[in-house]
């Protein structure tokens, strides 16, 4: 009750404040739509929201899945080999520093017309870095005693990884995944908005802009926030299941 009631009350208060702010200032729709304008807009386009929301969601999830696979592999390579860490780190930092908005047109040109691929690629490119870094740090800072207790028994490297290194790195991994899930989501929308191709919530936002339908634009923002929250809490749930042990004394 408390755990659900408090956040719900906070959201309601936020919406009321927003409504009041728009009413008090007498802002027109094109300056700032109010929650009571957004509701009807969302209802009016409900099927489009479902369809485009699904586009955005699945492409984000696939991009994130790629991030997890590639990020984990890169993290393992860098975590186990100092040579590879020294070699790859500057490359990765440089790659991460490039604003992805500038990469969007490049990717759109390379894979011209392949909209799903483009979008997934940007979602992946923007979100794998935190995972790679956290895994590599988790593995490279593993205390030697942890390895020795198994190594002294003749355990193979793979067994040590599976029994010790992997579970020990899980809390760091989920910490990074919480950042990455939001980033992947941003990546998907970046592609959808910068290179419109008639798919996803980004496209709906764009058409709202073209038609000067301001309540629709705000409705898209709300839908995006809702999807972002959903994805974030899916990760939190997975974390509870797989790394619940790292939460202390509650």
């Amino acid at each position: 009750m408390h755990r659900i009631g408090v956040p719900v009350a906070a959201v309601l208060i936020f919406l009321l404040l927003w409504e009041w702010l728009v009413w008090f200032n007498g802002w027109p729709n094109y300056k700032m739509a109010s929650p009571t304008d957004i509701g009807p807009a969302m209802w009016q386009y409900r099927w489009l929201f479902l369809e485009y929301g699904w586009d955005t969601l699945w492409r984000t999830v696939v991009g994130l899945a790629l991030s997890v696979i590639v990020g984990t592999l890169l993290g393992m390579v860098m975590g186990f080999s100092k040579l590879m860490r020294d070699a790859l780190y500057p490359l990765l930092v440089g790659f991460n520093a490039v604003p992805k908005a500038t990469v969007v047109p490049v990717i759109a040109l390379i894979f011209v017309g392949m909209h799903d691929t483009n979008t997934i690629l940007i979602a992946f490119m923007i979100s794998f870095f935190p995972i790679a870094v956290s895994i590599s740090i988790g593995l490279s800072t593993l205390e030697p005693e942890y390895r020795d207790i198994l190594r002294a028994l003749g355990a193979s490297r793979f067994t040590i990884f599976r029994k010790i290194a992997l579970p020990k790195t899980l809390p760091e991994f989920f910490g990074a995944l919480k950042v990455s899930v939001t980033l992947a989501f941003i990546g998907t929308n970046l592609m959808e908005i910068v290179e419109p191709h008639g798919k996803g919530l980004g496209h709906l936002f764009d058409s709202g802009k073209i038609n000067a339908d301001y309540p629709l634009m705000f409705a898209v923002l709300i839908a995006l926030a809702a999807l972002g929250i959903l994805l974030f809490y899916v990760v939190v749930m997975l974390e509870r299941i797989f790394a619940g042990w790292s939460e202390r004394g509650t």
Binding site: E143, E145, Y146, D148, I149, L150, A152, L153, G154, A155, T159, K163, I164, P167, K168, L170, A243, W245, S246
Partner: peptide
Amino acid sequence: VGMAFQNPVLLEWRTIIENVVLPLEIV
């Protein structure tokens, strides 16, 4: 061979008994 160090290096994600059993999973 069995080893114990100054740092007890127990695995936080395992219960005490699961920690004690660990070598039997390897040997």
